[in-house]
């Protein structure tokens, strides 16, 4: 048996090799969203994993995989306007990993996402919220409600959201330099 890493050890930013400073980015635009018939979250997430892993440590690539999966899943499960466009952006430059997704959203959906993000707090607080939410939702096996919490509690991203012209953009940032 080995010891479990302490919270302090896990709080520390991962070491990024000096050689791993590549600037890598991509944008995926899909329109209309009604054209999505396959598993878009998996396709984009596995591409993100493979692409980031070419230049950065696997644990960073895995974080990209989780974020893209959960955020793109939210897009395809919450299509307000089937004729609208969905967008995924990923950028990493040795200092920061930034992933954002954008889609058409109602004022109500924007308010709900904003409130959820504001409720997450620190990773430690988000972890308590994740445990509580899992306990509450498990009896009915309720879908959803865990993805955004997971990104903060488990993967230690900072989340933010913006809305303009009826489009919601959710951005997840992870610092690579401590």
């Amino acid at each position: 048996m080995t010891e479990t890493p302490t919270d302090n050890e896990r709080d520390a930013a991962p070491s990024v090799e000096p050689a791993a400073r590549a600037r890598v980015s991509f944008v995926v635009d899909v329109a209309p969203l009604s054209a999505v018939v396959g598993d878009l979250p998996t396709v984009v997430a596995e591409f993100s994993l493979a692409l980031v892993a070419l230049f950065y440590p696997t644990n960073i690539a895995k974080k990209a995989n989780v974020v893209v999966t959960e955020l793109v899943q939210n897009i395809v499960e919450n299509v307000l306007d089937p004729t609208s466009q969905g967008q995924v952006k990923l950028a990493i430059d040795g200092k920061e990993l930034v992933i954002s997704v954008a889609n058409a959203a109602s004022d109500e959906a924007v308010a709900k996402v904003r409130a959820r993000i504001e409720s997450l707090g620190t990773p430690a607080e988000a972890k308590k919220l994740l445990a509580q939410t899992i306990r509450e939702r498990r009896p009915q096996r309720l879908k959803g409600g865990l993805g955004l919490i997971r990104l903060v509690a488990e993967n230690r991203f900072t989340l933010s959201c913006d809305d303009s012209d009826g489009r919601l953009t959710v951005t997840a940032r992870y610092p690579l330099e401590g």
Binding site: T2, P5, R10, N59, A131, I134, R150, A153, E154, R156
Partner: peptide, 12 residues
């Protein structure tokens, strides 16, 4: 050891 979900969420 270095998998976030197995370290952070699995215990939950």
């Amino acid at each position: 050891r270095d998998d976030d979900w197995q370290q952070e969420t699995l215990p939950i």
